[in-house]
Design a protein around this nucleic acid. Structure first.
Lengths: 138, 138
DNA sequence: CATAAGGATTCCAGTAGATGGAAGGTCAAG
DNA sequence: CTTGACCTTCCATCTACTGGAATCCTTATG
C-alpha cells in the first residue's frame, strides 16, 4: 500500500505517518522506487497509534503500548499501569481546567461588558496582594 | 530592581521574564552595566501576566489584555469578549478530556491488571473497524 | 515520445511557551 | 586579587506535528 491509502484507511495525515516512521514508531518496507510499502500490520499499528493518541497517550506511551501489544508474554498489569498513570494526569488536567473555568466564569459574570472601562476581569488580574491581610496579619 | 527580585516577587522564573521581554510583553529599562532595571510597573505587569497565564490565557491574549489594561478608554466589553472566547476553549478542552477520562476509566476497570497478557485496553486500541458491517455491507 | 498531472520523496523551518546550559561580564566581600 | 553570586546573551531542546520547497516517480494522453 502507498502512504495515501494508509492515510485514508487510518485517518492519519501522510505527514504524520512519515513523522511516526522518523521517530521509529513504525518501519514500513520500501519499494525499489523509494516509495514506502505499507503492510496490513503497518496499517493496523498506525490505527492503533491513532486511537492511543486520541486517548491522549503521549508518543512515548504509545511506543510502550505498541511494544506491549506486540509482546504476547506481556502482563496486563504493565498496560494497566501506563493507562492508570495517564488517567491521573488527565484527572489533574481536568481539575486544573475546571478551576480555571470557575474563576473565569465568575469574572465574566461580574463584568457588565459594555462601553465603560470599568472591568472586574482586569481588576482581578491586576490585583495586588491584598491590602487587608498584609497590613494586619495578627 | 534586578531580575531576581522580580522573580521572587512575581513567582515567575527569571528565564520566563527574559523571555517575556524577548517577545515584547515588557520592556524594562537597562542600567549602564547592561542589567535590566525593573520598575514597580514592570513588576506589576509581570504579576498581571503571571495571573493571566495561570488562567490559561495565551501569550497573545495576555498581550491584548495588558494593552487593554493600560488603555484607560477601553470598553469592558472588549475584555469580556476575550475572556468569553477563552472560556469556551476551556470548556471544549474539558469536554474532550472528560470524554478521554471516561473511556480510559472504563478500560482500566475492565482490565484485571495481573500477570496474564489478556488486556481489554490493548484490545480496544487494536480494535479493527467491526467485522459485522464489513463482511456483508449489501 | 513528450508532457503534464498527481503522488511520492527528502529536508528545512516554524508553531507555543518556555527551559537548560554554556560562555562570559559584573559586583560585593574578604 | 580572588571567590562566588548574580547578570548577560545565545543556542539548543522539548511535544507532536504541520507547511512548504525542490525533486523524483508513475500514469494517462496527444
Amino acid at each position: 500500500m502507498n502512504i495515501s491509502d494508509v492515510a485514508a484507511g487510518t485517518g492519519l495525515p501522510a505527514k504524520t505517518i512519515r513523522y511516526y516512521e522518523d521517530i521509529g514508531l513504525i518501519s514500513p518496507a520500501r519499494r525499489d522506487n523509494g516509495y514506502r510499502d505499507f503492510s496490513d500490520t503497518d496499517m493496523h499499528n498506525l490505527a492503533f497509534l491513532g486511537r492511543a493518541r486520541s486517548l491522549g497517550f503521549s508518543i512515548e506511551e504509545c511506543r510502550a503500548l505498541l511494544a506491549l501489544y506486540a509482546d504476547r508474554d506481556r502482563s496486563s498489569a504493565e498496560v494497566r499501569a501506563i493507562a492508570q498513570e495517564h488517567l491521573q494526569r488527565i484527572e489533574a488536567k481536568i481539575a486544573g481546567l475546571v478551576a480555571m473555568r470557575d474563576t473565569l466564569a465568575g469574572l465574566i459574570t461580574a463584568c457588565h461588558g459594555d462601553a465603560r472601562p470599568d472591568c472586574p476581569i482586569l481588576a482581578d488580574l491586576a490585583a495586588e496582594p491584598v491590602g487587608g491581610a498584609t497590613t494586619d496579619p495578627d
